[in-house]
């Protein structure tokens, strides 16, 4: 049954991808790529990657769709019709696909316990997590502690994207602000539309609550700072769409957003530095408490909070920067 379901989902994934590329209506492309992300998330779930599925759904289907739609509102809704045929590129791409498919025939058998992936490093993580960190979710343990340096880098990738968008777009309305017929956010929001307003208002507290649950439950189940940050940002973006962008800015002003972006990243870094000050290495959380296991858990909790704060701040800043450009 799972096998048939797997085949079905993968085929659907391919069909969606082709439709995304084929459609000349950019709005349709964006909506389809949201669907694509959801399908991909289901696939990840079938492959036992619960954390990744949650992230792909929140980031791919949620945040990236919102960002793409905001950009479309400012730029263009339709793609120009292609002027020349692209047979040459198509042939090259098909040949490359066949080469890739041929090469994958040499891959280790799917889900084989004897494959090298499952032999060398992975079992150590599964064993060591219980002993050294004592939390159920091994993914969180690897992400936050064993490979915490990667995650620090990842926070700074998000940070860079955030300051990059602010650098490019600033916070002022752009030259298209006057003439643009598509309004991304009405200053009055969707107050005149009864159904979105009622349903949206009911949803926001639950999304926020779920976001906080995902943030603080990441050590026990799927979740963590990135997913939580995306969810909390999504709730506030929904609020901005319903009540108008200015109301959202009243709740969290731009200066606070900048503080969140910098503060979360710094929080992560400072926890790492404590490792050095307390006589061990950077990002060693064991020394944070007299009991190394408790120290690890404490460190994970704080860095996940740092991640969540920065991600929320960056996503909201990017949304506001895009929205300010499209305002009339």
């Amino acid at each position: 049954m799972t096998v048939i379901f797997g085949f079905f989902l993968l085929t659907l994934l391919l069909i969606t991808a082709v439709a995304i590329v084929q459609s000349q209506n950019l709005f349709v492309s964006v909506m389809l790529s949201g669907m694509f992300s959801l399908l991909l998330a289901v696939n990840f779930f079938l492959l036992d990657a619960a954390d990744v599925a949650l992230t792909e759904a929140a980031v791919g289907a949620g945040i990236s769709t919102v960002l793409l739609l905001s950009a479309l509102a400012i730029t263009a809704k339709h793609e120009k019709a292609p002027s020349s045929s692209r047979v040459g590129a198509l042939i090259i791409v098909i040949i490359a696909t066949l080469v890739l498919i041929y090469a994958t025939l040499g891959n280790p058998q799917f889900a084989d316990p004897n494959a090298p992936v499952h032999q060398h490093v992975a079992p150590w993580y599964l064993d060591k997590t219980a002993e050294a960190i004592d939390i159920p979710n091994v993914v969180t343990a690897v992400l936050g502690s064993f490979r915490g340096y990667d995650t620090l880098g990842e926070v700074f990738v998000v940070f860079t994207a955030g300051i990059g968008v602010l650098f490019l777009l600033g916070t002022q309305p752009g030259p298209f602000a006057q003439s643009n017929p598509f309004k991304l956010t009405d200053p009055k929001g969707l107050r005149h539309y009864l159904i979105p307003r009622v349903v949206g208002r009911m949803l926001i507290p639950f999304i926020l609550l779920f976001g906080l649950y995902v943030q603080f439950h990441g050590e026990y189940g799927p979740g963590g700072g990135f997913q939580a940050g995306a969810l909390i940002a999504a709730a506030i973006i929904l609020f901005a769409l319903l009540e108008g962008e200015n109301s959202a800015l009243k709740v969290i002003p731009r200066s606070v957003l900048i503080g969140l972006i910098a503060g979360g990243a710094l929080l992560y870094g400072v926890v790492g530095l404590f490792g050095i000050f307390l006589g061990s290495n950077f990002l060693d959380y064991s020394v944070l408490s007299s009991n190394p296991v408790k120290g690890q858990q404490m460190g994970l909790l704080i860095i996940e909070a740092g991640v969540g704060i920065t991600v929320t701040g960056v996503l909201l800043s990017i949304f506001h920067a895009f929205a300010a450009r499209g305002k009339f």
Binding site: V59, G60, S64, V158, F226, F322
Partner: peptide, 17 residues
């Protein structure tokens, strides 16, 4: 891949900017 997804959305956001 959690890291890579976040890198992907960051690149997308900057590209859209």
């Amino acid at each position: 891949i959690l890291t890579a997804i976040v890198v992907g959305i960051s690149t997308m956001a900057l590209g859209l900017g």
